[in-house]
Computed example of a mutant assay.
Amino acid sequence: MSIAVDNVSFAAGNTLIVNGISLSVEKGKVLGLLGPNGSGKSSLLRLICRLRKVRSGVVRLGGSDIASISRGDIARRIALVEQQATTDTRVTVIDVVRLGRTPHRGPLSSWSARDDAAVLDALARVGMRDRAGQLWQTLSGGERQRVHIARALAQTPSELLLDEPTNHLDIQHQLDILGLISKLDVTCVVALHDLNLAAMFCDSLAVLQKGEVVAAGLPEEVLTQELIERVFGVRAHVQKSSVHGRCNIQYMAG
């Protein structure tokens, strides 16, 4: 397995945020994390990349306990796209994306053609290459999100973690970004709110509630009418889409 989480728990003070979670992701596959606000999705992503320290349990990368891997090696291997990231510094789009190359460069190393190629390729993948010289502060929320994803891609990671990457994006760019993510030759763990997008683009799903995994497996196994009502508190009709062949969810009022 590329990523394996074994009975992991995490607490903030006396509050248990992640409670005995176990899950795994095969190399090159996309795992979608679903659940209501406060279910532990963001905390789990930070535990996987060691931005948070587990209270108990083990997170493994390629079979190795992440606690035994140096922070430099983790930075070169894992890229994280968070929900919100901003700056008051006057920087351009390409300046932001260049930050993705930082883990690959020593303190005295010069910028290389390989770095340039990684940055330009990442910008092209998210449709922002023509905005390379534009100031960050002039971008819309959706454009900023695409630039953050480009920064992560410029890092050339083997594992990519994304926390609500479609926030602030219009429908076209939601589909474009998740389509891109689903075709990358990297292992992805992505936290999402939209159940239909998760069904369309993720190879497998894990549903979290109050810090625990309450369902995991293929989208069509996980996204049942009963689970959606129990976890998300809404009534829904689930059927196979005649367009993309995955399950499609229609919500019912009242």
Rank of each mutant, 00 (worst) to 15 (best):
P157M: 05
I69R: 11
S68F: 01
L45M: 07
L135W: 12
G38I: 11
C49M: 05
T138E: 12
Q134L: 09
T156W: 01
R131H: 11
G100I: 00
R101N: 04
R60G: 03
T86P: 11
T92L: 02
L45C: 08
S56T: 14
G62I: 07
V97H: 00
S43G: 13
L99E: 00
V58W: 03
L51E: 15
S56C: 14
S39A: 14
L139T: 00
Q145L: 08
G57Y: 04
L108P: 03
W136C: 07
T87P: 10
T86W: 10
V58I: 14
R114G: 08
T156P: 01
T156Y: 01
D88Q: 13
L160I: 05
P36Q: 07
G32T: 03
I74H: 10
S39W: 05
L123K: 01
R71K: 12
R98C: 02
A150K: 00
S112T: 15
A124C: 04
R98T: 01
P107V: 12
V59P: 07
A79D: 13
G133A: 12
G62P: 12
L162V: 05
T89D: 14
G38P: 06
A75Q: 10
T89K: 10
P36R: 12
S68R: 14
G72N: 13
V54A: 15
A67H: 08
R144I: 11
A85W: 01
K41C: 04
L34F: 06
S56I: 03
G133N: 15
G62L: 06
V54E: 14
G142W: 12
P103E: 07
S70R: 12
E159A: 10
A113D: 15
A154T: 02
R50D: 14
V59M: 07
R46K: 15
R55N: 13
